Computed example of a mutant assay.
Amino acid sequence: MSSSEQMQWFAMRATYRRGMQIKELLDKQGISNFIPMRYEMQEKNGRKRRILVPVIRDLIFVRAVQSELQWVKDRNPYLQYMIDVRNGQKIIVPDEQMRQFIAVAGTYDEHLIFFSPDEVNLRKGMKVRIIGGDFKGYEGIFIKVKGARDRRVVISLQGIIAMAMATLSPDLVEVIKE
Protein backbone atom coordinates (compact mmCIF):
# COMPACT_ATOMS: atom_id res chain seq x y z
CA MET A 1 0.00 0.00 0.00
CA SER A 2 1.51 3.30 -1.00
CA SER A 3 1.07 6.21 1.42
CA SER A 4 -0.82 8.22 -1.20
CA GLU A 5 -3.58 5.62 -1.50
CA GLN A 6 -6.71 5.99 0.57
CA MET A 7 -9.38 3.57 1.71
CA GLN A 8 -12.40 3.73 -0.59
CA TRP A 9 -15.65 1.84 -1.15
CA PHE A 10 -15.54 0.13 -4.55
CA ALA A 11 -18.74 -1.19 -6.15
CA MET A 12 -17.96 -4.64 -7.51
CA ARG A 13 -19.52 -7.70 -9.11
CA ALA A 14 -18.82 -11.25 -8.03
CA THR A 15 -19.82 -13.12 -11.18
CA TYR A 16 -21.47 -16.54 -11.45
CA ARG A 17 -23.28 -16.20 -8.09
CA ARG A 18 -20.04 -16.19 -6.15
CA GLY A 19 -20.88 -13.14 -4.01
CA MET A 20 -21.06 -14.99 -0.69
CA GLN A 21 -17.90 -16.96 -1.53
CA ILE A 22 -16.00 -13.71 -2.27
CA LYS A 23 -17.43 -12.13 0.92
CA GLU A 24 -16.10 -15.05 2.98
CA LEU A 25 -12.67 -14.71 1.37
CA LEU A 26 -12.57 -10.93 2.02
CA ASP A 27 -13.71 -11.45 5.62
CA LYS A 28 -10.87 -13.96 6.19
CA GLN A 29 -8.39 -11.38 4.86
CA GLY A 30 -9.83 -8.64 7.10
CA ILE A 31 -11.05 -6.56 4.16
CA SER A 32 -14.27 -4.62 4.87
CA ASN A 33 -17.13 -5.47 2.54
CA PHE A 34 -20.91 -5.30 2.37
CA ILE A 35 -23.58 -7.20 0.47
CA PRO A 36 -27.10 -5.75 0.78
CA MET A 37 -29.32 -8.62 2.00
CA ARG A 38 -33.00 -9.22 2.73
CA TYR A 39 -35.15 -12.00 4.13
CA GLU A 40 -37.13 -14.12 1.69
CA MET A 41 -39.50 -17.03 2.18
CA GLN A 42 -38.34 -20.13 0.31
CA GLU A 43 -39.91 -23.55 0.16
CA LYS A 44 -37.75 -26.64 0.33
CA ASN A 45 -39.13 -30.17 0.63
CA GLY A 46 -42.59 -28.76 1.37
CA ARG A 47 -41.35 -26.61 4.28
CA LYS A 48 -41.24 -22.83 4.18
CA ARG A 49 -38.16 -21.16 5.60
CA ARG A 50 -37.17 -17.53 6.00
CA ILE A 51 -33.64 -17.11 4.67
CA LEU A 52 -31.29 -14.19 4.14
CA VAL A 53 -30.44 -13.63 0.47
CA PRO A 54 -28.58 -10.92 -1.48
CA VAL A 55 -30.83 -8.11 -2.71
CA ILE A 56 -28.99 -7.98 -6.04
CA ARG A 57 -27.18 -11.12 -7.06
CA ASP A 58 -23.43 -10.62 -7.52
CA LEU A 59 -23.29 -7.07 -6.04
CA ILE A 60 -20.64 -6.50 -3.37
CA PHE A 61 -19.12 -3.31 -1.97
CA VAL A 62 -15.47 -3.55 -0.89
CA ARG A 63 -13.61 -1.00 1.24
CA ALA A 64 -9.90 -1.12 0.53
CA VAL A 65 -7.03 0.78 -1.03
CA GLN A 66 -6.69 0.28 -4.78
CA SER A 67 -3.45 -1.75 -4.63
CA GLU A 68 -4.77 -4.17 -1.97
CA LEU A 69 -8.01 -4.70 -3.88
CA GLN A 70 -6.12 -5.22 -7.14
CA TRP A 71 -3.99 -7.90 -5.41
CA VAL A 72 -7.18 -9.72 -4.30
CA LYS A 73 -8.79 -9.24 -7.70
CA ASP A 74 -5.76 -10.67 -9.54
CA ARG A 75 -6.21 -13.91 -7.56
CA ASN A 76 -10.01 -14.03 -8.00
CA PRO A 77 -11.14 -13.72 -11.62
CA TYR A 78 -14.79 -13.73 -10.50
CA LEU A 79 -14.39 -10.34 -8.76
CA GLN A 80 -14.83 -7.42 -11.16
CA TYR A 81 -14.99 -3.65 -10.82
CA MET A 82 -18.27 -1.97 -11.71
CA ILE A 83 -17.59 0.73 -14.28
CA ASP A 84 -19.55 3.97 -14.74
CA VAL A 85 -20.68 3.84 -18.39
CA ARG A 86 -20.69 7.64 -18.64
CA ASN A 87 -16.99 8.12 -17.93
CA GLY A 88 -15.41 4.64 -17.98
CA GLN A 89 -14.17 5.01 -14.39
CA LYS A 90 -14.46 2.48 -11.55
CA ILE A 91 -17.49 3.25 -9.37
CA ILE A 92 -16.36 4.50 -5.96
CA VAL A 93 -19.01 5.30 -3.36
CA PRO A 94 -18.24 8.13 -0.89
CA ASP A 95 -17.73 6.93 2.72
CA GLU A 96 -20.63 8.94 4.18
CA GLN A 97 -23.06 7.75 1.52
CA MET A 98 -21.96 4.15 2.09
CA ARG A 99 -22.20 4.51 5.87
CA GLN A 100 -25.83 5.64 5.59
CA PHE A 101 -26.65 2.91 3.09
CA ILE A 102 -25.17 0.18 5.31
CA ALA A 103 -26.91 1.54 8.41
CA VAL A 104 -30.30 1.28 6.69
CA ALA A 105 -29.80 -1.82 4.49
CA GLY A 106 -28.01 -3.64 7.32
CA THR A 107 -31.21 -3.69 9.40
CA TYR A 108 -32.72 -6.29 6.99
CA ASP A 109 -36.01 -4.42 7.52
CA GLU A 110 -38.77 -6.08 5.53
CA HIS A 111 -40.28 -2.66 4.75
CA LEU A 112 -37.24 -1.65 2.68
CA ILE A 113 -37.88 -1.73 -1.05
CA PHE A 114 -34.86 -2.04 -3.35
CA PHE A 115 -34.77 -0.75 -6.93
CA SER A 116 -32.39 -0.63 -9.81
CA PRO A 117 -31.59 3.02 -10.62
CA ASP A 118 -33.75 3.05 -13.76
CA GLU A 119 -36.83 2.04 -11.74
CA VAL A 120 -36.98 5.30 -9.75
CA ASN A 121 -36.96 8.85 -11.03
CA LEU A 122 -35.17 10.78 -8.30
CA ARG A 123 -35.46 14.03 -10.26
CA LYS A 124 -39.19 14.06 -9.45
CA GLY A 125 -38.59 14.12 -5.71
CA MET A 126 -37.34 16.65 -3.20
CA LYS A 127 -34.14 16.36 -1.22
CA VAL A 128 -34.88 15.75 2.48
CA ARG A 129 -33.13 15.10 5.79
CA ILE A 130 -34.57 12.83 8.47
CA ILE A 131 -34.74 14.80 11.74
CA GLY A 132 -35.84 12.12 14.19
CA GLY A 133 -36.01 8.41 14.88
CA ASP A 134 -33.47 5.70 14.15
CA PHE A 135 -32.21 7.34 10.95
CA LYS A 136 -31.88 10.91 12.22
CA GLY A 137 -29.43 12.93 10.10
CA TYR A 138 -29.71 10.74 6.99
CA GLU A 139 -30.47 12.37 3.66
CA GLY A 140 -32.34 11.12 0.65
CA ILE A 141 -35.00 11.95 -1.91
CA PHE A 142 -38.68 12.00 -0.90
CA ILE A 143 -40.73 10.44 -3.73
CA LYS A 144 -43.62 8.13 -4.55
CA VAL A 145 -42.23 4.68 -5.32
CA LYS A 146 -43.67 1.70 -7.15
CA GLY A 147 -45.00 -0.91 -4.74
CA ALA A 148 -45.82 1.56 -1.93
CA ARG A 149 -49.01 3.52 -1.27
CA ASP A 150 -47.23 6.54 0.16
CA ARG A 151 -44.11 8.58 -0.42
CA ARG A 152 -40.84 7.20 0.90
CA VAL A 153 -37.34 8.50 1.50
CA VAL A 154 -35.02 6.91 -1.06
CA ILE A 155 -31.28 6.54 -0.55
CA SER A 156 -29.46 6.02 -3.82
CA LEU A 157 -25.90 4.94 -4.56
CA GLN A 158 -24.56 6.39 -7.81
CA GLY A 159 -26.51 4.47 -10.39
CA ILE A 160 -25.96 1.10 -8.68
CA ILE A 161 -28.91 0.60 -6.34
CA ALA A 162 -31.67 2.65 -4.73
CA MET A 163 -33.46 1.77 -1.51
CA ALA A 164 -36.80 3.13 -0.28
CA MET A 165 -37.03 3.24 3.50
CA ALA A 166 -40.08 2.36 5.58
CA THR A 167 -42.84 4.95 5.77
CA LEU A 168 -41.76 7.91 7.88
CA SER A 169 -44.02 10.32 9.72
CA PRO A 170 -43.93 13.72 7.89
CA ASP A 171 -42.83 15.46 11.10
CA LEU A 172 -39.57 13.43 10.99
CA VAL A 173 -38.61 14.80 7.56
CA GLU A 174 -37.38 18.29 6.62
CA VAL A 175 -36.85 19.63 3.12
CA ILE A 176 -33.26 20.59 2.28
CA LYS A 177 -33.15 23.93 0.48
CA GLU A 178 -30.76 23.76 -2.48
Rank of each mutant, 00 (worst) to 15 (best):
I143L: 14
V93M: 12
I51H: 01
L157E: 02
I91M: 11
E24Y: 04
Q21I: 15
Q70V: 14
A105T: 07
V104E: 00
L112I: 09
L122F: 03
V93A: 06
Q80W: 06
I91P: 00
I141R: 05
K48P: 00
R13M: 09
V53L: 10
R38M: 15
E178N: 07
A148I: 10
I160Q: 03
Q66N: 06
D118C: 06
L112S: 02
E139V: 14
R129A: 10
D58I: 08
E139L: 07
V93Q: 04
D84N: 15
R13L: 14
F61V: 02
L157I: 15
G140S: 01
D84A: 12
Q70W: 03
M126Q: 14
R18N: 09
G125R: 12
D150E: 08
E139F: 04
L157A: 08
G46N: 11
M41I: 15
M126T: 15
M1I: 10
A11E: 01
L112K: 01
D74A: 14
V153M: 12
W9G: 00
T15W: 04
I22R: 01
I131R: 08
D95F: 08
M41D: 05
R50F: 03
T167R: 14
G140F: 08
Q29F: 06
E178R: 12
Y39R: 03
R13E: 10
M126S: 09
R13V: 05
L172E: 09
G125S: 04
I35H: 02
T15Y: 03
K90V: 15
A11L: 12
Q158I: 10
I51E: 11
G46K: 04
A148M: 09
F10I: 10
E5I: 11
D109E: 13
S2E: 13
N87D: 15
F101G: 01
I92P: 00
Y16R: 10
R18C: 05
V55N: 01
S32L: 14
V128D: 02
R63H: 12
T167C: 01
F34Q: 04
N121S: 07
A64P: 00
Q97E: 15
P170S: 09
H111N: 12
V154L: 09
I35K: 01
Q42I: 15
I102A: 00
K136N: 05
L69S: 05
L26F: 10
A105R: 00
E96F: 09
G106N: 06
K136E: 15
